Simulated scan of single mutants.
Amino acid sequence: MTPSEQNIFGNRLKLARKMAGFSLQELADALENIVTKQALHKYEMGLMKPSNDALIAISKALKVKPDFFLKTDQVELGEVLFRKKTTLSKKIEESIIEKVRYYVERSLEIENILGLESKFENPLENFVINNRNDIELAAAELRSNWQLGLIPIHNLVEMLELRGVKILLIDDVDDIDGLAVYTSEKIPIVVVNTRNKPIERIRFTVIHELAHLLLILNKSIEDNPKEVEKYCHLFSSCFLLPREMLIKMIGSTKRNYIKIQELIAIKEYFGISIRAIVHRLKEMEVITESYYNRWVVYISKEYGAKDEPGKYKGEEKSRNFDQLVNRALAEELISLSKAATLWDVTVDQLRNGYIGKQ
Rank of each mutant, 00 (worst) to 15 (best):
S4M: 04
E5D: 14
E5H: 08
N7L: 06
N11D: 01
L15I: 12
R17E: 10
A20F: 00
S23T: 14
L24C: 08
A30R: 07
N33Q: 14
T36N: 15
A39F: 13
N52T: 15
L62H: 01
V64H: 03
D67Y: 10
F68L: 10
D73Y: 09
V75S: 08
V75Y: 07
G78P: 05
G78L: 10
K84L: 12
K85T: 13
T86I: 15
T86A: 13
T87M: 07
I92F: 07
Y103I: 04
R106M: 09
E109A: 05
I113M: 07
S118Y: 06
E121L: 10
F127Y: 14
N130K: 12
R132N: 00
L137N: 12
R143W: 04
R143F: 04
S144W: 07
W146G: 04
L150N: 05
V157T: 14
E158W: 07
E158G: 03
L160K: 04
L162Y: 04
K166P: 00
L169R: 11
A180T: 08
P188G: 06
V190W: 09
V190K: 08
R195L: 04
R195C: 00
R195M: 02
K197G: 00
E200L: 00
R203E: 01
F204S: 07
V206G: 03
I207C: 07
H208M: 13
L214P: 02
L214G: 02
L215S: 01
L215W: 02
N218S: 08
S220W: 05
P225F: 12
C232V: 03
S236P: 02
S236I: 01
S237M: 06
C238M: 01
R243C: 00
N256P: 01
I266W: 01
Y269V: 14
Y269K: 14
M284P: 03
V286P: 04
Y292D: 03
N293A: 09
N293P: 01
V297E: 14
Y298T: 10
I299Y: 02
I299E: 02
Y303K: 02
A305I: 07
G310V: 04
K311H: 08
G314F: 07
E315R: 08
N320T: 08
Q323H: 11
Q323L: 12
Q323G: 06
L324H: 05
L324E: 02
N326L: 15
R327W: 05
L329M: 15
A339N: 08
A340M: 10
D344L: 10
V345N: 09
V347T: 14
D348W: 11
I355C: 09
K357L: 07
